[in-house]
Write a protein that binds this DNA or RNA. Structure first.
Lengths: 151, 151
DNA sequence: CAAAATTACCCACTTTTACCCACTATTAAC
DNA sequence: GTTAATAGTGGGTAAAAGTGGGTAATTTTG
């Protein structure tokens, strides 16, 4: 279970150093094999341990090919999903097409989100986070599942 | 399980170099024997390992011959299906009629889609992808299978 | 059957990537 | 506070992959 915000620098080659505290867990869980894809709702990337992603892709692959919405999701998610291997220094190379999508340059944020990470450009993350905080005040409608949630 | 975006150049002879990371899997799975056909809903091609295609063609052949829609799909898909062999350098020659259908010139994109690849002209893929990203927000009707999907 | 076009196979060049090493900064220990 | 160890960062290099083209064999066409 991943959690926490981690400000990181991408190096000149587009490599992302996974913070050391996650590495053991990642090596145990998937031998350093990860899968990155795009988030379709925000300009950020999703980074899964490969076994976690394989479950999702199996579900996506099973969707009906002649349904337009299904096809669209398959093309976006599976189409952008790329295998990444951690190197000996605990780094993964983020492919150029994905970097472009999420507007990643030097300063990025790695966000632990349970079974996956999200990768944001630092600038975009800060803006998004601030918007979220404002929205909370406005008291936007919460789905039923959340009405009973106690923190 | 294929996945990922791969920008590739078709060479002057219409050959497509399969990215190295897929080659071992393709050789294991079908000894380099692939089948390409058209996608009937988008101007792109579908590229299957031969055993995967054989399953699909068997289903198509079993459709009722007197149903007009079935007949049409059979003619389009089976009619355009062409055997392709990977050469020693991991390349397949994309036949001219298929290249024309999908408007393939030099810059193309090979899109992993589970049991198959899609082959797009780079320009058309970028346009299509951008449209899809806009549509996601509009929340077009999703099939039931997708309502429960959690990423 | 001959000529032309196409295709398969091979080789050469260029670009990219994986792997390794070195340096710096930060944390932890004494 | 000083030292040691670990983590973060950057870059060089050898190997692999991508790319392009020549030539010979095969197929197609007139």
């Amino acid at each position: 279970m991943f959690r926490g915000v981690n400000p990181i620098n991408l190096d000149g080659k587009g490599r992302l150093a996974i913070p050391a505290r996650y590495r053991e867990s990642i090596n145990d869980h998937c031998d350093g094999k990860m899968v990155a894809t795009i988030d379709t709702e925000s300009k950020c990337l999703l980074l899964y341990p490969q076994p976690e992603w394989d479950v999702i892709q199996a579900k996506l692959d099973a969707l009906p090919s002649f349904n337009k919405a299904a096809r669209r999701i398959q093309r976006l998610l599976v189409g952008h999903a790329t295998d990444l291997d951690m190197d000996a220094a605990g780094r993964v190379l983020v492919p150029a097409p994905l970097r472009e999508y999420a507007l990643l340059e030097k300063r990025i944020v790695l966000l632990g989100q349970g079974n996956k990470f999200e990768i944001w450009s630092e600038e975009l993350w800060n803006e998004t986070r601030d918007e979220y905080l404002l929205d909370v005040d406005s008291g936007a409608a919460l789905p039923d599942e959340m009405q009973t949630l106690s923190l």
